[in-house]
Design a protein around this nucleic acid. Structure first.
Lengths: 242, 242, 242, 242
DNA sequence: TATGAATGAGATTTCATTCAT
DNA sequence: AATGAATGAAATCTCATTCAT
């Protein structure tokens, strides 16, 4: 899967799109002039408008491939399959999911960055993002969380939506810091970091060494899930380091 | 603490700045015209340039107050104090920290959003962000993580930088989703969500019910904490609310 | 009544409008560039757009003053008054009307020409022209014709609408030829030509010398007036040539 | 006689020309793009330029056929023949002339409209129009008027040029109103309207019922044609419907 | 000090024309 | 001969900035 938006597009259109995308990432949409794009794509300025009637269409051209690559039936089924492979444990499944999403994200980073960065100020993107992209991706994660909560494996009191959000936050934060502060996070080892995110997500930062008295007040809505948990042998409390 | 950048500024300048900030949030910096700003601030267009020689200066005017409010000595000391109050347990301290940062973030949301959103394409902002803001904020969290790791309370294998990043990711993700997909996360209860983030950060999503065999491969550096955990009695049940 | 479209307009706006109008007459709307207009009006190109958001608005700016000047209540009342002054005979009234309209037309010639010339291809103008301008002006003339027909003074078989159209055709044709073929009609004497148009309109070109057998078949609706004529003694039939 | 400009042209060229002409009528010359023309003619854009080196040549291509069709020796001779057929009375001859010109005009309406509409702003067309077309057509009518004036049949004081102009004005006005305000004049009956124009041209709108005292001041050159009329009993008044 | 009209450089967009296939 | 993609000059329009009042 190349980063070109549509393998069926004419070469010129691809050139232009790639050039635009590069520049949008470097400078943002508004700061990029059609002259910039023409120069980078090595075409005449007028040629741009043969393929993208307005400059804005170049931007919107990002959403379609993004949507299909991230949330197309194939990809979503893929994600669901990973999450439902009960032969693997949670850790493995989550690591696979994150690795899969991360590689997807990295392959499409220019489009993703542009889409996320322009979304707040580009009504169409905002709409697609709010109404299609976010619900789908969050929804998929929620489904998984729901199942694990029902099975008593994940804490009911964290809520499936919050769990979904937090998992995504970890992944997005990873990409964000790596991209935005490369001097601090630029050389992270993806595999290791994925393992760490999953470890934190599943079992937290705490070794357990110091935690007995400090646990137990996750908001007002807490429904005493601990009762169930109390029955559990080998519960989280066991996870102490020494 | 008002959201005006500098109490010493003349009223006119503050009006203009506030108006600009609002518009930068709504439309982005580039899409906002000086005419928009003048209208919103109810001043003449020319007046803007008496206080901010160029439009860009309006944008840069965000960085100074941001830096002082988030990373000024007072505020940083504040954060350090919270984290070092050993009379409280980790949960309480982290909740206080997140609550404090969240309220700070929410009070300064317009500036923060603008700074973060424009940073990638505004060299000066990028520089300040990479060289000052991020290191300070991450550094502070790192310090705390380091101490807790040294004390054996936090898992050494997660790394202090990664821990810092993940804590920040959870908070940033929370703000991001709330802001970006209000239809899904708009009515979150801040306090509850903070509690949940801290719960996840400290102890993870897992109840422990299903976890014995699923743990144990947090990257290559993993030091088998799980073995210890299995021995533990009580488990998560101990972490109850009151 | 000056040719400026609106005495209330700022000077700059008037300059621009006048310049545009001149150029529209000389070159047509499409051939006139905003640069041309700026140069002629001696303003910067950008200034045009402060007063007329788009170039097309300059064109549409023509319709409002035209409508009010030609078909505003005052002017229409004026025309109706002239036509209904029964102290004058038809010739005098028509001459006064034509003179009045002609002077009006000549004062507003640039706007009129532009409006008429652009109307077929400018949907808004076309609409105003078809739905407002033409019906009003034709309607007014029709009213007069109707009255005179009812009084038996004008030939019923010519129809009020046709009479109105023909009167207007004579006047428009006069202006058209004078403007378009100045080498043939440029130095016409307006007063004399008005008198001639009215003479023709009322009594035709014929001296009567040759007409008896030539009259009487104005279309199929004609009800054999010629029979009557034949009976007439000394009637028009007497005006024969030989 | 088809509306194609030259039967000798290759089919492709004719297609292109017809398409261009249609579009010039609908949108005007400037507003019509070569792309429009190519689409309508169902040829490639480049093909246009094989037959018409520039877009302007498409416009100028209108003049030659127009000139030959309206003012070519054959056609002019035709018109002169009609006017000089002394076996017919004036009414018949004028009706035949107008009917002939009108049908000619209607057959060539697209070219005619375009020519007239673009003439003021297209130097070459303007020149041809002023120096060839108008003089020829006006001249021919003038010749006829001159003869009839000399014969005492048409009023000398109206002047041959003015008479010619007024006859043409009536015809042009008819076409103009029918085309421009179809909601008012669209369904006119050509034959009837021609009869009415000729009736008005020869004998005027007046029935004569009210006319004795109202006639008599057609400019300074007036030679009292009214005297004849005054003698008339019944006169034109006889031509009334009831 | 404040104003807001005026500016003009620069952005986007159009379209007649060319040219490789 | 025909095509239609590519061109780039020229058009319309935007907007940060200046400046006379």
């Amino acid at each position: 899967m190349s980063s070109s938006p549509d393998a069926e597009w004419p070469i010129r259109q691809q050139q232009i799109f790639e050039a635009a995308l590069e520049l949008f990432v470097e400078q943002g949409f508004q700061r990029t002039t059609t002259q910039d794009i023409a120069r980078r794509a090595k075409v005449a300025e007028g040629t741009i408008f043969r393929y993208f009637p307005t400059k804005r269409d170049l931007l919107l051209g990002i959403m379609a491939p993004l949507a299909s690559r991230f949330f197309g039936p194939v990809v979503l089924r893929d994600a669901r399959r990973i999450l439902s492979e009960t032969t693997y444990d949670d850790r493995t499944r989550l690591e696979k999911l994150l690795a899969n999403r991360l590689s997807l994200a990295q392959k499409n980073l220019p489009m993703l960055r542009t889409a996320i960065w322009e979304a707040p100020h580009e009504p169409h993107m905002r709409k697609v993002f709010q109404e299609t992209v976010a619900p789908q991706i969050v929804g998929m994660a929620e489904d998984f969380m729901n199942i694990r909560i029902a099975e008593g494996v994940f804490k009911k009191e964290l809520g499936e939506r919050t769990l979904a959000r937090m998992l995504l936050s970890l992944l997005m934060g990873y990409v964000f810091f790596k991209e935005t502060v490369p001097n601090m996070f630029g050389d992270s080892d993806d595999q290791q970091e994925i393992a760490r995110m999953v470890e934190l997500f599943l079992y937290g930062a705490s070794t357990g060494a110091d935690s007995a008295e400090t646990q137990g007040k996750t908001g007002e809505t807490r429904e005493r899930p601990q009762e169930t948990q109390e029955k559990t042998k080998g519960g989280q409390g066991a996870r102490r380091e020494m």
